[in-house]
Write a protein that binds this DNA or RNA. Structure first.
Lengths: 265, 265
DNA sequence: CAGTGGTCTAGACCACACT
DNA sequence: GTGTGGTCTAGACCACTGC
């Protein structure tokens, strides 16, 4: 391609892939990375919604005025980051947390003798959900200012009759305006699917810090264990697009019947 | 390319990429997957050793009689699995555990307020290393038979003066014949680098099961904590090529000064 | 400078899914 | 059959490294 350029509908000036973009640093960015950025922008802006198909590689190539191979490489990366899902013969879809086979995408807890995921769905119980102002610590985790409104919720997950997870979570008040204990309790399915459907907030990645701790009495009660029972503490910060933190979650996992799985490579 | 075929030095018959390979199942396998398998075989057989450069994409393409792009895709996958390392302008290298910037590739423990990895090297102390026969449980984990010879070792890792990790590990006696406490203690650097250099065993991936537990008195002593201190139990099975298990490791991590990090996506 | 990996293209054909 | 993603090729050019 001699002069790659974007269509007017993308409001992008023509550019040459190999050229430096500014003065100081070279800032060379491959064409496919720029295409990836444009697709990402469309995802953020909701041009294609979770679960929907996006245009075919051929169409995207025409739209961005690049070759199909270049679009392919951009889509490949987005698919490997779990933002898109490719299905041969059908198309490329916007990833969603509301699918059976990718439910609990971020939950690494597995039953001890669980042959597979044949554990059945978890029983979810909302303990509370209240509005409050962010402490310095919460604010820092969510990139807010101290005192900004946040939602705090606590819930317990029970697997096959055994209360196994007790977690507290904090959400920024703005994006989640209108979330109540009732709406949380009424929704059957992964919480992130609810966030997606009701608030347009898509969690795309998360970081976890894991420790071994002892529960306080309230937590021990909720899980039906003694306060001397060691539990896994899982502190998660979940991010939407552009590395914007959207949730802080502190979970306590019982590990007498389950374990936290991790694959290293 | 009309008739892709391998050179005689690879002892492979010519083949057509898109054709079924047998009678029953189609068993279609893309060309690049087959190339990947051949490169993998060369890695296993030690044709290229850890840290060495492998032939250029162009050379590999000629050797396998496929296009450079096909080799590229095979190498891409091997690089994404951390078996190869690409360095622009220099070549593609066999990955190794003996490199500074990938040391502790499998250790996910990080200091609490650690700005980065500025913690300095760990102090390693070998507590014991003995030969014994595999219990049913150990044998199952290492794909051995009960009673097969195994090596068992225990060590403590100390960071900035604080004993933080106590781990037991079991290795199959065959591949690790000749390993002693002395050789373990004499080696400075990651244990997997020693395995690589001295025994030709390369760990390429691992699975971990994490729980919260209490230490027994011996473990508590070694870590300098009370037996009531909750600790992270990390059970790891490490694999070399072809998913062959080569190590079972049970670590106890102190998480009052460190945490186990995990990235979800 | 030559040699390496990295990007981009254009076109052909295959495997798969839906109609 | 038509349209999708998936594979493979051949060739051009760019970016980086080391001689």
């Amino acid at each position: 391609m001699a002069t790659p350029a974007f269509s007017l509908s993308d409001s992008e000036p023509p550019f040459s892939p190999g050229l430096p973009s500014g003065g100081g640093t070279p800032a060379f960015s491959p064409l496919y990375q720029q295409i990836k950025g444009l697709i990402l922008r469309s995802l953020q802006q909701g041009e294609w919604k979770p679960g929907e198909v996006i245009p075919s590689e051929f169409d995207l190539a025409a739209r961005f005025r690049v070759s199909q191979g270049t679009v392919r490489k951009a889509v490949d990366e987005l698919a490997s980051e779990n933002l898109l899902m490719r299905r041969q013969g059908r198309g490329t879809f916007v990833a969603t947390h509301a699918e059976q086979h990718v439910q609990y995408r971020f939950l690494r807890l597995e039953p001890d003798s669980g042959t597979t995921d044949s554990e059945g769905p978890a029983q979810r119980e909302i303990i509370e959900c209240k509005r409050l102002r962010a402490s310095a610590e919460i604010a820092r985790a969510l990139a807010l200012r101290t005192g900004d409104p946040v939602l705090q919720a606590r819930r317990v997950l029970t697997f096959t009759g055994v209360p196994t997870i007790c977690e507290d979570l904090w959400l920024p008040g703005g994006p989640f305006k209108g979330l109540t204990a009732e709406r949380l309790a009424a929704y059957h399915g992964p919480m992130y699917a609810l966030f997606e459907a009701e608030f347009g907030v898509r969690m795309v990645r998360a970081d976890e810090k894991i420790r071994a701790v002892l529960p306080d009495t309230a937590q021990a009660d909720l899980l039906g264990v003694t306060p001397a029972t060691p539990l896994l503490s899982v502190e998660r910060i979940a991010y939407t697009y552009n590395d914007v933190p959207m949730e802080l979650r502190r979970g306590l996992y019982r590990t007498d019947t389950h374990y936290y799985r991790n694959h290293l490579s």
